[in-house]
């Protein structure tokens, strides 16, 4: 598989007072060119940390403690600070959660766009400004040429997230890390922004790592899904297969907890218990204390990723050698 992004056995540790907490452990996945990989999980599952690690923006006390990250076949987690900087914004761009705070309040949006392009692309200031106007038009901002002179506070939240998208796309990156890009927006605007993101990626063949806790968003946009739990990938595979035949009990729990308009429910379904925190890790499979199907082995040994159809599932139930729960 000629993947655009390959993450292999990534491990991120956080230096706490005496010991080192493991935020992410043994996370592996690939994203092909033009593919949308959704990354879901509860808060604290390690979704954002994974995205941050790919961008090379981990900051102390968090450090990459193991594994490799390859972009276009080239290892990038060992690049120099300057080498990684040149890649960021140009080949790998980012969209963060809160559009209200992602833009410098003291600089016009035209200047922020031009500044980004002049950093990465060989063009003159005049060319940059002209391109900035085109970009604003492409992300659907009315009267784009006048809007170049606007400051962030003069635009609404949805407009600002469009500007952030323009900034992400301005150097034609091949991968975008979108970390909860619609969470902070009004529900009515979420769909618009998601639509825009999907359309622009499809037109340009841009791959996306879409970090979200919203299964609805994943179902709508993602080609494949990685379900993260307690810093590990529980299950990864094609979106359709995961929705229809989730193999991991946690994924099934997630699917069951999506409220449906068709089913009339008195109460929302939820997975009892809480995810273990990095400072209190659980032996064996991290999900076993909450798992309805757990058996002795789950508490003793951590399951490796077993292939199930086109998916990989880290669960003893998916072990081909599994022959029912021993009595």
């Amino acid at each position: 598989m000629n993947a655009l992004l390959q993450v292999e056995n990534l491990r991120v540790e956080i230096a706490a007072r005496k010991r080192r907490l493991v935020a992410i452990d043994d996370v592996s996945f690939e994203i092909a060119a033009g593919e949308v990989l959704g990354v879901v999980g509860e808060s604290g599952a390690g979704k954002s940390v994974t995205g941050t690690a790919v961008l090379g923006l981990l900051e102390a006390p968090a450090v990459q403690a193991g594994g490799r990250i390859l972009f276009d076949g080239r290892r990038i987690d060992t690049l120099s600070e300057e080498g990684m900087r040149a890649l960021r914004g140009k080949e790998i761009a980012a969209v963060f959660q809160d559009p209200l705070t992602s833009l410098d309040p003291l600089m016009t949006i035209g200047d922020q766009l031009t500044e980004t392009m002049l950093t990465h692309l060989p063009m003159t200031r005049a060319e940059g400004e002209a391109r900035a106007g085109e970009l604003l038009a492409e992300v659907g901002i009315p009267a784009p040429r006048e809007r170049l002179q606007a400051y962030p506070h003069e635009l609404s939240g949805g407009m600002r997230q469009r500007v952030v998208l323009a900034l992400a796309f301005c150097c034609a990156p091949r991968l975008i890390i979108a970390d909860e890009p619609t969470t902070a927006l009004d529900v009515s605007i979420q769909a618009q922004i998601l639509d825009l993101l999907r359309r622009m990626c499809r037109e340009r063949g841009t791959a996306v790592m879409l970090v979200t806790h919203d299964m609805g968003v994943i179902a709508e946009v993602a080609d494949r899904v990685a379900v993260m739990y307690a810093g590990r990938v529980a299950e990864i595979g094609p979106t359709r297969q995961l929705i229809a035949h989730a193999a991991h009990p946690y994924t099934r729990g997630l699917m069951a907890s999506i409220p449906s308009m068709r089913r009339r429910e008195k109460e929302l379904t939820q997975i009892p218990g809480a995810m273990p925190r990095p400072d209190a890790p659980v032996a064996g499979c991290a999900f076993h204390p909450r798992c309805p199907q757990a058996f002795a082995r789950c508490a003793a040994e951590r399951p490796p990723a077993f292939p199930v159809g086109a998916a990989r599932v880290a669960c003893w139930l998916a072990d081909p050698a599994f022959e029912g729960v021993p009595a």
Binding site: R85, A93, T101, L103, E115
Partner: peptide, 26 residues
Amino acid sequence: RTDFIRFAKARGLKPRAIEYRHALRN
């Protein structure tokens, strides 16, 4: 520590531009 500085880093701006053009003015 603000989000827009983090986003400026994600845009791949040079440290000098981040520190003086964005951070110092704010």
